[in-house]
Design a protein around this nucleic acid. Structure first.
Length: 508
RNA sequence: GGCGGCAUGGCCAAGUGGUAAGGCAGAGGAUUGCAAAUCCUUUACCCCCAGUUCGAAUCUGGGUGCCGCCUCCA
C-alpha cells in the first residue's frame, strides 16, 4: 500500500507521488494576523501537522520523505489596518503581537513550526515582480492605481472550484455598483494591487502607492520559497474559492506550469451546525480554551477523531469525551517513563517522547506488527486518523491498565513487564499523530506517591490522617472516616481503598 | 439558482460488496462500610423508497434532511 490523498483538483483519492523521489514541497495557507487564532485554525494546522509528521515518518509505506513545509503570515490586509486604527496602533504592531500569539498557541498544541514562514511585508519585491509579469503578459490590467487580474484571459479558470465563468457572470450581474466593481472587466476579476486611499499605509509600486491583494501574496511566496510547481498545497475548504482558484490563475499565468500537484482541504469546525468564524462571532480562541483548563492533547485528540475533510462540530460534551479518552491514552504513554525502573524498561524511554520521528523500523512481534500495519493502512487511506486512533487505543488498553495499577502501588506481573515493545510502538505511533504524554502528566504521576513539596501537608501528616481514618473505620465510625477523607480531598489528596483494608493516598 | 459534501448505536466517529473499529456515556460484575478511582464484561442491521447482486451500511436511481462555497475567512 501507499499513501493516497484526496485531491480537490480531481475530487478523488490519488496515489501520492512527489515530483522528486524523496523530497516533498508543501505550502500551507497561513493566517491573516489581525486577531488570535480560534479552533478552526487549530484544526487546520493540527491535521496538516499530522500530514507532515506522517510524510517524515520512517515507518511510512514509502519511507521517510524530506519535507519542506512553508506557511505564510498575511500581514498586509484591511482587517489588520482596521484593527490597528481601532487600537491606535501601527499595522506592524498588530501583526507582531498576533504572530507571537500564533507561535505560542501552536507550540502549545505541539504543531511543528514550518521550515519557512514568509510574510507579505517581506515579499514585496516578489509580489511587485509577479504583478508586473502578469501585466506584461496581458493577464492583468491596471485601472486608476489598481491592478486587476483578467480571469477571462486565463484558460481553465474555475478548475479547482468547479465554477463556470459564464453562468456565474449572470448571477453576479447585480453587483457592479461600487467603484471597484466598475473598474473590473469581469465580475470575477480580482485586485492584485490596490491603490492606497489617503492616509492609509502604503508601499510604493509602478502603479502608484498601495498594497498587494491577498491572493497575489501567496502566489509570490510560493514562488519565492518553493518554485513554480510544488507537490502539495494545503488550506481550509473555505479557501477553495476564490483564494486558491485565484492563486492558481496567477501562478499558472505567470509560469505556464501547474502550481500544485495535490490540493488538500480540511473541513470546517462548526458550532451548533454552523461554521465557526470571526464574522459569525461564534468562535472560541485556542488561548481561551487552553486557559479554561483543556489540555492541548485533548484538543488534538478531539480533532483527530474525525476525518480531516469532514465538518467537525465543536461541543463541550465532545471535548469532555476527548478529555477522558486522552486521560487513558496519556496514562499508557507515560507508563514507560514513569515506571521505567520498576519495570526494568528504559532503553528508549526519553528519546521517543514527543519527537516527530519515532525509532527506526525494526522487527516487531507478530501482534505488534499487525497493529503497526493497520495504523499505516489507515493513514495511507487519506489520513484516516480516526481509524489510526482506534489502533492506538487498542494498543494502549493493557498499558493503561498497567499504569493505573502501578499508580496505586500494585506490582507488575511477568506478562506486564514484557510489554516494553508494545509501549515503544504506542509511543512511536502516537508521535506520528503529534500525541505525547505532557510533561506535567508524567511528572505528576512520577511524584504522586513520594512527593511532599507541593501540598501543604507533609507525608507524615497525611499518613497520620490516613491512620486515623483507618481506626475510625475499624470502629465503624464511618462519619469520622468520611470526614477525614473529605478533608484530605480538599487538600488535593485522593484516597484509594484497596482490598485487604489497605489505603493508598495520592496527590491529585 | 450554480458547485461541492454529509446522513452509521444515547453522543462523537471509522468502515465503499460478504453478516458493523475505536472513544465517551450507560449497564452488569470485581473491589469497598459507602463513595471515588481502577480493572473485567457488555449494548447497532447503518435516513426513506426502488433497483443491481448469491449477498449492500458499502453500487445505481429517486426522495427527505443537514452543511460548506459562490463576499473576508483555516
Amino acid at each position: 500500500m501507499t499513501l493516497r490523498l484526496t485531491n480537490t483538483l480531481s475530487r478523488s483519492k490519488e496515489v501520492f507521488k512527489p515530483l522528486d523521489d524523496r523530497r516533498v514541497s508543501i505550502y500551507c495557507c497561513g493566517v491573516t494576523v489581525y486577531d488570535l487564532c480560534h479552533l478552526g485554525h487549530a484544526r487546520s494546522y493540527i491535521v496538516w501537522d499530522v500530514l507532515r509528521r506522517y510524510l517524515c515518518w520512517p515507518g511510512q509505506s514509502d519511507g521517510a520523505y524530506v519535507v519542506k513545509f512553508v506557511q505564510n503570515f498575511t500581514d498586509i490586509d484591511d482587517k489588520i489596518l482596521n484593527r490597528a486604527a481601532e487600537q491606535g496602533l501601527a499595522m506592524e504592531q498588530v501583526s507582531e503581537r498576533n504572530i507571537s500569539a500564533y507561535f505560542q498557541d501552536m507550540d502549545a498544541l505541539n504543531i511543528l513550526r514550518a521550515d519557512a514562514m514568509p510574510r507579505a511585508t517581506g515579499c514585496l519585491d516578489g509580489i511587485r515582480d509577479l504583478i508586473a509579469e502578469l501585466e506584461h503578459k496581458g493577464a492583468a490590467y491596471s485601472a486608476d492605481g489598481d491592478v486587476y487580474f483578467a480571469v477571462m484571459k486565463q484558460a481553465g479558470y474555475g478548475k479547482l472550484s468547479g465554477r463556470d465563468l459564464c453562468e456565474q457572470q449572470e448571477g453576479a450581474s447585480g453587483r457592479t455598483t461600487t467603484t471597484e466593481e466598475g473598474r473590473k472587466h469581469h465580475p470575477f476579476d480580482f485586485a492584485l494591487w490596490k491603490g492606497a486611499k489617503p492616509g492609509e499605509p502604503s508601499f510604493p509600486s509602478p502603479w502608484g502607492p498601495g498594497r498587494p491583494g491577498w491572493h497575489i501574496e501567496c502566489s509570490a511566496m510560493v514562488r519565492q520559497e518553493l518554485g513554480d510547481t510544488i507537490d502539495i498545497h494545503l488550506g481550509g475548504a473555505d479557501l477553495i474559492f476564490p483564494h486558491h482558484e485565484n492563486e492558481i490563475a496567477q501562478s499558472e499565468a505567470a509560469s505556464g506550469k501547474p502550481l500544485a500537484r495535490y490540493w488538500l482541504h480540511n473541513g470546517m469546525v462548526n458550532v451548533g451546525g454552523e461554521k465557526m468564524s470571526k464574522s459569525l462571532g461564534n468562535f472560541t480562541t485556542i488561548r481561551a480554551l487552553l486557559e479554561s483548563g483543556v489540555s492541548p492533547m485533548t484538543l488534538r485528540l478531539f480533532v483527530l477523531q474525525a476525518h480531516y475533510r469532514k465538518p467537525l462540530d465543536f461541543t463541550l460534551e465532545g471535548l469532555d469525551a476527548a478529555a477522558t479518552g486522552w486521560k487513558g491514552l496519556s496514562a499508557a504513554l507515560a507508563v514507560g517513563q514513569t515506571y521505567a525502573d520498576s519495570l526494568g524498561w528504559g532503553a528508549s524511554a526519553g528519546s521517543a517522547l514527543g519527537s516527530a520521528v519515532g525509532p527506526a523500523d525494526r522487527e516487531w512481534p507478530e501482534e505488534l506488527r499487525v497493529s503497526r500495519d493497520r495504523f499505516r493502512e489507515a493513514m495511507d487511506d487519506d489520513l484516516n486518523t480516526a481509524a489510526a486512533l482506534g489502533e492506538l487505543f487498542e494498543l494502549a488498553r493493557p498499558l493503561r491498565a498497567l499504569a493505573n495499577r502501578l499508580r496505586i502501588g500494585d506490582v507488575a506481573s511477568e506478562a506486564e513487564r514484557a510489554m516494553e515493545d508494545r509501549w515503544t510502538l504506542l509511543v512511536e505511533l502516537a508521535g506520528v499523530l503529534g500525541l505525547a504524554a505532557e510533561r506535567e502528566v508524567v511528572q505528576a504521576a512520577a511524584e504522586g506517591i513520594s512527593d511532599e513539596s507541593q501540598s501543604g501537608l507533609s507525608d507524615v501528616a497525611i499518613e497520620a490522617l490516613v491512620e486515623q481514618r483507618k481506626a475510625a473505620k475499624a470502629a465503624r465510625d464511618f462519619a469520622s472516616a468520611d470526614r477525614l477523607r473529605n478533608e484530605l480531598k480538599a487538600q488535593g489528596i485522593d484516597l484509594v481503598d484497596k482490598p485487604g483494608g489497605v489505603t493508598v493516598w495520592l496527590r491529585g
